[in-house]
Write a protein that binds this DNA or RNA. Structure first.
Lengths: 199, 199
DNA sequence: CGTCCATCTTACTGGGAGTAGGTTACCAGC
DNA sequence: GCTGGTAACCTACTCCCAGTAAGATGGACG
């Protein structure tokens, strides 16, 4: 009860709270249909506060996306730490990814929707998110590809990320496909192809 | 000169003209930043006409997307007609796709942005576009997969489409990568993996 | 020449993003 | 306990843009 009616709140706490609510609203209503007034009301604060902290509606979305991205990065990176070789690392990373999208649907939904920002001023930020995953994949395989064909390695990383993204979206419509099965499907196609190029 | 100052125009012609202009504006400004007033002015007509023909801003975008989608389908389907086997068909289809995205950048840009509609009322229409390509891929391979593992075949098709989509976006940043090279990269990874499952 | 209707227009409403400027709770330090 | 001072907060706007109501006009065909 002491904290229940509390109004004034320190900056950091209020920001976390706003991001939490916004993530909820954006992922249910969709970015375009969500209104700043509604988010403000759910937070229990007036609209100008949102602008004080995030500058714009897009800024708020970006903050939510960064949050989700950080979690995804954390999860996938952690998953690969004990891997014995590139194939194992790729498999562990994929599994962690498919588990993530199942258990944190809201966060994943936000990450998907970042696509909607292409063409806006946030394009750079979007590009950054994209690189995070490709870099991770590229790093996983960097020691295993012939050096001198960097372009091919880079293309392969993009390829893997794109394939898994779509597969993940497909999984949303197929609850019967477990993360483990999805990983198997992916590795099935991927590793056979990548192995040829690995030394 | 007889047609230059013409105002009244038959429905079908006016629609084509509107779609043409809208495609231009949406792909340069981006969907959110584009305004119906601007499009109307460029067409040389008043805003309510756009609503008369397309009902809403989203409806106009959808019309543009359908147009581009039809071209893409036409091009990829035609490419596969003379193929001798599944591998050949896949390769020809991929090449046609990568040529398309290079030569019709505007149309491709629109197709990419359809992602932005997820979460809107147009979700069904978006899903339809997605299926077009996966169905095509699935059909290409349908005769080559073990029957009884349809789920795996479906996953593989999603996988291929997602991978190529991302690879295509990557190609936008790499002018030095020709459609032929992109096709080679894709086939390199894909066919080795798919072949295992092909009978 | 008149009548019908498809094409087209002007002039509005509503709602949501973003803002200017004032107000209040909380925490110093006295 | 009282008094600045500042960080958190609010009310009350503006402006822009999607979408609409109601009417004007060109022209095909009798």
């Amino acid at each position: 009860m002491t904290t229940a009616k509390r109004k004034r709140m320190p900056r950091a706490d209020r920001m976390r709270q706003m991001i939490e609510v916004a993530e909820q609203v954006f992922s249910t209503r969709g970015y375009a249909a969500a209104s700043m007034d509604e988010i403000a009301e759910l937070v229990g604060v007036s609209k100008p506060m949102l602008y004080e902290y995030f500058n714009s509606k897009e800024g708020l979305l970006l903050a939510c996306i960064r949050e989700s991205r950080a979690v995804l990065r954390e999860v996938t990176e952690q998953a690969t730490v004990g891997a014995v070789d590139a194939e194992d690392a790729l498999r562990r990373g994929l599994l962690a990814f498919f588990v993530f999208i199942r258990e944190r649907r809201q966060a994943w939904s936000l990450l998907r929707h970042e696509m909607a920002l292409i063409g806006t001023s946030a394009a750079d930020e979007v590009e950054e998110t994209r690189r995070q995953q490709t870099d991770l994949i590229a790093a996983l395989m960097s020691g295993y590809f012939d050096s001198g064909d960097d372009l091919r390695a880079e293309a392969a990383a993009e390829f893997v990320v794109g394939a898994c993204e779509r597969l993940a979206i497909w999984c949303e419509r197929h609850d019967e496909v477990s993360p483990a099965t999805a990983t198997e499907y992916a590795m099935d196609v991927l590793w056979a192809g990548l192995r040829q190029r690995a030394r």
